[in-house]
Lab assay of single mutants.
Amino acid sequence: KLETFPLDVLVNTAAEDLPRGVDPSRKENHLSDEDFKAVFGMTRSAFANLPLWKQQNLKKEKGLF
């Protein structure tokens, strides 16, 4: 399991300012399950079932792209 970080560490943070080991294209993977659901309004599995373009739009909207 990946290390999780608080939302404010990941949202609207440039790649070079992210904690070590965080993939800038997969910031959402480093949210706790609770934060993930609070941000996206759905579970990880529901998010994973969305088309890629919709996932990317949601990530942009939430500052996690």
Rank of each mutant, 00 (worst) to 15 (best):
K1E: 13
L2W: 15
L2P: 14
L2V: 14
F5W: 11
F5I: 07
F5T: 03
F5R: 03
F5E: 02
P6S: 06
P6K: 02
P6N: 04
P6G: 06
P6Q: 04
L10A: 02
L10H: 02
N12I: 06
N12P: 04
T13C: 12
A15F: 10
E16F: 01
E16N: 11
D17R: 10
L18R: 03
L18T: 05
P19Y: 02
P19R: 04
P19F: 02
P19N: 04
P19L: 04
P19G: 04
P19T: 03
P19V: 04
R20C: 15
R20S: 14
R20F: 14
G21M: 07
V22A: 04
V22H: 04
V22N: 03
D23A: 04
D23C: 10
P24S: 07
P24C: 07
S25N: 14
S25T: 15
S25D: 15
R26A: 10
R26G: 07
R26S: 09
R26E: 07
R26T: 08
K27E: 03
K27Q: 06
K27D: 04
E28C: 04
E28P: 03
H30W: 12
L31A: 01
L31E: 01
S32G: 06
D33W: 04
E34R: 08
E34F: 10
E34H: 10
E34G: 08
D35M: 06
F36M: 01
F36N: 00
K37A: 12
A38T: 13
A38R: 11
A38N: 13
V39Q: 03
V39L: 12
F40Y: 01
G41D: 09
T43G: 09
S45F: 13
S45A: 14
A46Y: 08
A46I: 09
F47I: 00
A48C: 12
A48E: 13
A48P: 00
N49H: 11
L50P: 00
P51C: 05
P51Y: 01
P51Q: 02
L52M: 12
L52Y: 13
W53R: 08
W53T: 09
K54T: 11
K54F: 12
Q55E: 00
Q55M: 02
Q55Y: 01
Q56C: 14
Q56S: 10
N57R: 12
L58H: 03
L58N: 01
L58T: 02
K59W: 05
K59F: 05
K60L: 11
K60Q: 11
E61P: 01
E61M: 12
E61N: 08
K62M: 08
K62H: 10
K62W: 05
G63P: 01
G63S: 04
G63H: 05
L64M: 08
L64E: 03
F65S: 15
F65I: 13
